[in-house]
């Protein structure tokens, strides 16, 4: 599951300058592991199911052979975007939601997007 999540995150957070910083992706995966560990079996099940659907259906939506791991970076991005705009789009929301919530809590992301929170007595790293 974590490999699939990493592929999804690298496609989601890529920029004009290329793939996201590997160090930040490592931080994201560590935090995701902790999140799913605490969030309960049903949350893990839904997250896993959504990722599985994206991994197999997104390539099919651009007429490629599953899974996302078999595609190039640009093809993955195109496949996931196409899936999101299809009737199966809600499948992409689960992973996107959790990964975005975590990603935007990284201090560097907050600095880049000017979204530093104003109300934290102490933030655990």
């Amino acid at each position: 599951m974590m490999d699939r999540a990493k592929i999804f995150a690298e496609a989601l957070f890529a920029t004009d300058e290329g793939p996201p910083d590997p160090e930040r992706i490592r931080w994201l995966m560590d935090d995701l592991r902790d999140f799913l560990g605490h969030a309960g079996g049903r949350a893990r099940g839904i997250f896993r199911l959504c990722l599985f659907a994206c991994d197999w259906l997104a390539p099919l939506s651009v007429r490629k052979v599953p899974t996302l791991a078999n595609l190039s970076r640009d093809e993955r991005i195109r496949a996931l975007a196409t899936l999101e705009h299809s009737a199966l789009g809600p499948a992409a929301l689960g992973p996107k939601a959790i990964l975005c919530i975590l990603w935007f809590e990284h201090p560097d992301t907050q600095r880049e997007t000017r979204t530093t929170p104003s109300c934290m007595t102490e933030v655990r790293s």
């Binding site: 957070f13 890529a14 920029t15 991005i77 999101e84 935007f104 997007t113 979204t115």
Partner: peptide
């Protein structure tokens, strides 16, 4: 929170970055 805002924005990679940079 900004992460939830970003999650509801369409697109991946550059298309998503365009929106998330305007949060």
């Amino acid at each position: 929170p900004s992460g939830v805002l970003a999650a509801t924005m369409p697109g991946f990679a550059q298309a998503h970055a365009k929106f998330r940079n305007q949060i």
